[in-house]
């Protein structure tokens, strides 16, 4: 009788453990989550070539899949992010980068707005000086 009880407990225990295994912990989709996070961060700055205006990270197009696969392989092979980007730029041009490189062609793009801010500030100062005139002005609450 006692043996039977033990057997029962064992079976019960087994059932319990299997059901616990059944309600398992979700696994990361990627084999290597660290690498995947790196891929994700990087592919957010890359453009899917065949899509309307989508990042490589967000696109489901077959080419984007292939490129992600290729990037993973290169990362596994120990390439740095910069090397991977260079690899893609060598094949598809600067078009794949959402962050345009800083060079003589893109100087206006990168620095133009700040120049505008400076010029705007300068012009405003000059005009304000003129607007203020020379004599004293009294402040107003409001």
């Amino acid at each position: 009788m006692k043996k039977l009880l033990i057997l029962f407990l064992l079976v019960f225990n087994f059932l319990l453990s299997t059901s616990a295994a059944f309600a398992g912990e979700a696994k990361p989709l990627a084999e290597d989550p660290v690498l995947e996070a790196r891929l994700k961060a990087m592919s957010h700055e890359l453009r899917c070539l065949v899509c309307q205006n989508q990042t490589l990270a967000d696109s489901n197009s077959p080419l984007a899949e292939d490129l992600r696969k290729e990037i993973r392989a290169q990362m596994r092979a120990g390439k740095s992010d910069q090397e991977v980007v260079d690899y893609l730029v060598a094949r598809y041009g600067d078009f794949v980068r959402y962050r345009p490189p800083v060079n003589s062609n893109t100087a206006l793009l990168w620095f133009g707005p700040f120049l505008l801010l400076l010029i705007g500030g300068f012009v405003l100062y000059r005009v304000l000086k003129k607007q203020a005139g020379s004599d004293d002005i009294q402040g107003e609450d409001g």
Binding site: L49, V50, D66, E70, R91, Y92
Partner: peptide
């Protein structure tokens, strides 16, 4: 078959 040469050539369409 796996499109790897295509990537080397920068094929996108």
């Amino acid at each position: 078959a796996d499109g790897k040469i295509g990537i080397d050539y920068g094929v996108y369409g």
